[in-house]
Amino acid sequence: MKKILSIYNQQKEVISYLFWGVMTTVVNILIFALFHWLTNWNYLINNSIAWLISVLFAYVTNRIYVFHSYSDSRKAMFKEIISFLIGRGASYFIEQAILIVGISGLKWHEITVKIIANVVVVIINYFWSKWAVFKKKGTES
């Protein structure tokens, strides 16, 4: 049990990010699937709506539960939000490209491609969040 607790304490941030990343992915895929089943909209529109809602969810959970970020000022918080949105915006375009290739190009099932795209995006977003958005104070280059 001590060994498990030791590993948990050493990897707490990664474990927390994976948990909240999975939760964000579930939110993203569920919203995408709901719009897929309930509307006749293009999958890229459905993805955009799902992306927006899941990014808001991800920012709050990453800030509070993963990286424990607390801003001293509005300016610092604004900078953090903008950096987060820039990173997520970049991964949004990567996700859209994966969807276009997988769904329109390869003719794979929309939900399957969405899940694959989310795995790629979660990995990219972790490193962006860790190194660019929620840096520990005093680690800026």
Rank of each mutant, 00 (worst) to 15 (best):
Ile15Lys: 04
Trp128Thr: 05
Thr112Asn: 04
Thr61Leu: 08
Arg63Glu: 07
Val119Arg: 00
Phe32Asn: 04
Ser129Pro: 03
Leu52Val: 15
Val55Asn: 04
Ile124Ala: 09
Tyr17Gln: 01
Ser16Ala: 13
Ser71Lys: 05
Lys3His: 12
Gly138Asn: 14
Ile15Asp: 05
Gly89Pro: 08
Ile103Pro: 00
Lys130Asn: 01
Lys130Leu: 00
Ser73Ala: 00
Tyr8His: 09
Ala132Lys: 15
Ala132Val: 10
Glu80Thr: 14
Ala50Gly: 08
Leu38Met: 12
Lys3Ala: 10
Lys136Ile: 11
Val101Lys: 01
Ser83His: 00
Thr112Gln: 06
Gln10Glu: 08
Phe57Cys: 10
Ala97Cys: 12
Ile100Ala: 03
Leu5Val: 11
Lys135Thr: 03
Leu56Phe: 11
Ile111Leu: 06
Leu30Ser: 08
Asn40Ser: 11
Arg63Cys: 06
Val133Lys: 01
Val27His: 15
Ser129Leu: 00
Ser71Phe: 03
Gln11Tyr: 15
Val27Leu: 13
Ile86Lys: 06
Val121Glu: 07
Tyr59Ile: 02
Ile82Phe: 14
Thr25Met: 02
Lys114Gly: 05
Ser83Lys: 03
Trp128Phe: 04
Phe84Thr: 00
Tyr126Ala: 05
Ile116Leu: 14
Gly105Tyr: 03
Tyr92Val: 08
Ala117Trp: 05
Asn9Trp: 12
Ile116Arg: 13
Lys2Asp: 07
Arg74Gly: 15
Phe78Pro: 05
Asn42Gln: 10
Ile123Phe: 06
Val66Asn: 01
Asn47Ile: 04
Trp51Leu: 05
Thr25Glu: 01
Ile82Glu: 10
Ile86Gly: 03
Lys107Cys: 09
His36Asp: 11
Thr25Tyr: 02
Phe67Met: 11
Tyr17Cys: 03
Ile29Glu: 03
Phe35Asn: 06
His68Ala: 06
Lys137Glu: 07
Ser69Pro: 08
